[in-house]
Nucleic acid binder design. Sequence first.
DNA 1: TTAGGGTTAG
Length: 855
Amino acid sequence: MRDLLMASSSSPIPPNSSLTLNNRLIRTFPTKTPQNPTKTTLSLKYLSSTPLLSDIRPDLGLQNPSSLKFYASMASKLAENGRLDEFSMLAESFIGSGMAPGHFVEALSIKHVSAGFALCLKNGEFDTVLGVMEKFDKLGICPSLIFDGSARRLLLSACRRVLDGDNIGEFVRLVEIFAGYRFSVKDVVKPTFILQACIDRHDPFMAGRYASILPHADVWFNFLICEFGKKKDLQSALVAFEVSKGKSVSPNMYIYRSIIDACGYCGDSLKSRSIFEDLLVQKITPNTFVFNSLMNVNAHDSHYALHIYKQMKKLGVAADMASYNVLLKVCCLAGRVDLAQEIYEEILQRALFGGLKLDVITYSTIIKVFADAKMWEMAFKIKDDMISAGVSPNIVTWSSLISACANAGLVERVIQVLEEMLVVGCEPNTQCCNILLNACVESCQFDRAFRIFHFWKQNGFSMGSNAKECGSKTVTDIKQNEYFSSGNHEFHITSDALDPHDLNFSEVIPFKPTVATYNILMKACGTDYYRAQALMDEMKAGGLSPNHISWSILIDICGRSYNMKGAIQAFKSMYNAGIIPDVVAYTTAIKACVGNKYFKMAFSLFEEMKRHRLQPNLVTYNTLLTARSRYGSLDEVLQCLAIYQDMRKAGYNSNDRFLKELLEEWCEGVISDKGKRWSELNIDKCDKGSEVYGPQSLLLEKVAAYLQENFAENLTIDLRGLTKVEARIIVLAKLRMLKENYILGKPVRDDMIIITANTRSNMDAAETELRVRDAVIRVLQGELGLSVLEGPELGELSTRHAHVISSLSPETLTMSKRPQLREYTTRRPVDVQRLKIPRRSLNLWLQKGVGTQKR
DNA sequence: TTAGGGTTAG
């Protein structure tokens, strides 16, 4: 028996607790259970006083029914005292001796075991209970057979622990054990409860483990993917997706759609594309839902979305109303009025012949398309269409109609539409009101915005006394009963509405301003910081919390009113209020700094946002780059260039206006004739214009690379492969740096070498090189008066192309000094052509320049 | 299970 017991033990045995039979050690236990010495002694006494046990032998015990009974009662006693470790040992030894588990179970008092479990749970010894369960599981005793009642208790208790933030793993382990015996966990605990706990803890692995053992696992996986997506935890959603893919035999379209939607929620539309590709690779035709979701998630990229739509057609997947609605959304986002109209026509056709029914979303979206394009008349035409088709405008439709007027700057018309809406019994919500308020602000009718706001706050909205019935009446029909007037007394209440007899019929809807409402009003404060602050206080008093937009507006107000202190304070307050500034908040703060000439702070804010992993956008970059209207030192120029490079790396193809200004100011500064500017020098045109400053221009990268690579020490400039403008900038930049060094007391110690050409260039390239060379010489000699040496002084010149070129382009022949220099070029052909500016000439030039600069 | 409306920065 002893051997048997020891053999079945699986864990190392601490020496501090033991179970003995007749003074023989049969087992030691880990002392997890708080031991009650009295009780231990009692039961051991009880055990040892039994004569049958003094010479117990497994083979005898097997036959002996009273020994069976004894074991069972012993086990019950241990369980009852919560000593489940010992209890399970005993059971183990009993079953290990060959007795059928059923016999042991039958002999046990279930009541006692349950009581034991309860005790352990009360003491928080969850692991003990679980350990016993698992042991039983291994021994082939069905836990539900013994613990049916306890199971519920266990699960519920585990659930509570999950709620308290304890390890979900315990619960899932328990469920896994039960699941093996088809114990219906979901009758005890709602699966969503545990899954939600996993989602909250961003634990897709545990969630997946749990979902896998639930009936209809795929549905639960779907739930998981959706919920993780809504939590913006795409990582976890993708894990759940992968786990579910591994579980199911065939691809589940529900799950594919959900993961695509999750990508949308999390702003990773590219991921959605690769998931879709994955389907196609497997030669699986996605269904309409998958296509719709994919188009929706990629709605901001009309090119891609339309491509998907084409693919959908090609694969013969039917487009439904949602597909068209998504397509209209695509048009709306892309501002493609033309395409939206085309699609609208197509939908109308299909509605005629294909049984498709346009819904309120279709109409609302197309109205929005026109609203955004400021085509308010078209928007109202669609409204007529929808009414003829028997579709009633809802609150969203009305909102879009109101926006149509607002975007067109028609404040009066906005008021009319709101009025009409009230008349037909559609309660305006705050969003609608906000559009009106914003329209006032946009058209600088600040006072009006405040007047309307206060009126609404005091009076709410009085729906027409017979509003519900007069849906068909036109606005003009009810003029005499209108609550809005665009005259001096805005939104006055007519005497009718104040008539107490009418109160029964007229419905007053309270106006509940939202954060957006207050934000719009804050914009109406102009530069009145105190008024904006008061609005914020009012917002807080009304139980609303200012959001990042509110704070951004406040920062902007401070910035524009030269209240830098206030701007900094507002930025800090935002932090203290627990709101993490977003790109716009940072950009606004940077704008405030720039506007108030706090350049250093502007740059450090920029650094800070990057440290916080906030990607600056085009507006941020441009705001920051305008900071340097006067570029002083190389450091500052480098700082700007670094930002510029950063901007390119981030994929912004900005226009190069700021860079141009920056380089112009800085590089051209070396030319004494400050009046000369790029435009006058006609450089853009010389170098085919757009090629130089166009979006593909690598000018910046080249200049930045030159400036950053030990530029000051190295006096060789390699202009090969550069355009004329680029070459000019590089050369000027180098001179500018020499000048800065010179001012700092570092004269030039070497000649400057300029490499201008390859000999192996083809004819076109050689011609360009020659033009570059000419331009550089023109700057150096003509504009700056430096002496430039070419040819034999350098000892290594050539070009076999030079002659060819000179005959091809006669204008180059007119360049000063060229024929003389070219005489030497055929003698010793080498790979490069060089120009040299002697050290002496450079220093002379610097001396002169600095002298005039010092005045 | 999809789809539509309002407020912020150059």
